[in-house]
């Protein structure tokens, strides 16, 4: 935890200095982000390719419900999918709604002395909030890279700011995102067993995201950064004609950008790759039809087993005595020798 915190602060400080030093602005504002994007894309693809390189020798779905067997028994089409469609459905539930995480709460509702039920439910809820708000914030940021700004983004912003608080209008997504991140961090710090299993590389992405979102919130609501100038710079990157705008930009923006670049660079080499990995998880992405449909193991070794002939050779006389049918009678066997 401590190491991660120091690392994030140091990163932020470096970015601040970079943003405040005129000569380094090009490096921190343009070169680094562009490198980061390249590293992210290349790293992401490389990781997926690397995983995909290893085969799936066996079809091992974890079944979360009734299999399809007899016509009159109702199968669980999504939790124990028999078809490709069902499997896609299961994956969608998993990716979009965190189905497995939601399981945590189901049974506890009934017998439930409070604590376990709530804490589990919180994990599902805040994980979901975090991911969706992050997505919304991510999409909202496209307004900096597209000109004219697509109508869809405008509509999204209207909904996001529907509470009509403050100037500039408060976007719920950003605030919830920040809150969810704080919850996830507090959970790691306060739940004893979670704290025991957490590694510095669990805290680092969390703190980095808190820094990223925090600096973003500051830029919008407190520092009230000059959007037009920032857009001039981001459009420069987007159109591949990068330049540092003439008007000054707050160093805080460079901190924001620095955290983002770090996140992009770290992403492919960290646990954040669960984003891609979940699609390749063999306990989820395969249908439960393994007795009906052949699954190929590319490295299936040749069969070596003790054959019936070897078995009978060992036990022939005993089997004969017991009246068990034989392929070769003791007499035939004796005659051969």
């Amino acid at each position: 935890m401590f190491i991660s915190l120091v690392a994030v602060i140091v990163l932020g400080a470096i970015a601040w200095m970079g943003g405040a030093t005129p000569g380094l602005q090009y490096l921190f504002g343009i070169v680094l982000p562009m490198i980061a994007v390249v590293v992210f894309l290349a790293g992401f693809i490389w990781r997926i390719m690397d995983w995909a390189k290893s085969p799936v020798p066996f079809s091992i779905p974890t079944t979360g419900g009734q299999q399809r067997s007899l016509d009159w028994i109702k199968p669980a089409r999504l939790d124990s999918p028999y078809t490709k469609t069902g499997t896609v459905g299961r994956m969608l539930l998993e990716v979009l709604l965190f189905r497995s995480l939601f399981r945590n709460t189901k049974a506890e509702l009934r017998n439930g002395p409070r604590l376990v039920y709530w804490s589990s439910k919180w994990l599902w809820l805040f994980a979901l909030l975090f991911h969706y708000c992050f997505l919304v914030v991510f999409i909202r940021h496209f307004r900096f890279f597209l000109d004219p700004v697509p109508v869809a983004i405008g509509m999204m912003e209207t909904v996001d700011g529907i509470m009509q608080i403050g100037v500039p209008r408060l976007f719920m997504s950003g605030v919830i995102l920040f809150g969810a991140l704080l919850f996830l961090l507090m959970r790691r710090l306060c739940d004893q067993k979670l704290r025991y299993i957490s590694l510095p590389n669990d805290y680092f992405p969390l703190l980095l995201l808190i820094g990223l979102v925090g600096s973003g919130l500051c830029l919008r609501y407190i520092g009230k950064a000059d959007i037009a100038t920032i857009k001039e710079m981001t459009m420069g990157i987007a159109t591949l004609s990068p330049h540092i705008p003439a008007l000054p930009i707050s160093p805080l923006f460079y901190v924001h950008l620095g955290f983002l670049s770090t996140l992009l660079i770290v992403f492919p080499f960290s646990k954040l790759m669960h984003m891609g990995g979940i699609f390749l998880s063999p306990t989820r992405n395969l249908p439960n039809n393994t007795r009906a449909v052949h699954h190929t193991n590319p490295w299936n070794p040749p069969k070596t087993y003790r054959t019936y002939a070897e078995y009978e050779n060992d036990f022939r006389d005993l089997m004969d005595e017991a009246g068990l049918p034989l392929e070769i009678t003791p007499e035939q066997a004796a005659a051969k020798e």
Binding site: N111, P113, V116, D191, Q192, K193, Y196
Partner: peptide
């Protein structure tokens, strides 16, 4: 290492 879990969770099952 076990105490935390024992303390925070009182579901019978």
């Amino acid at each position: 290492e076990t105490i935390g879990f024992l303390r925070t969770n009182s579901n019978r099952f």
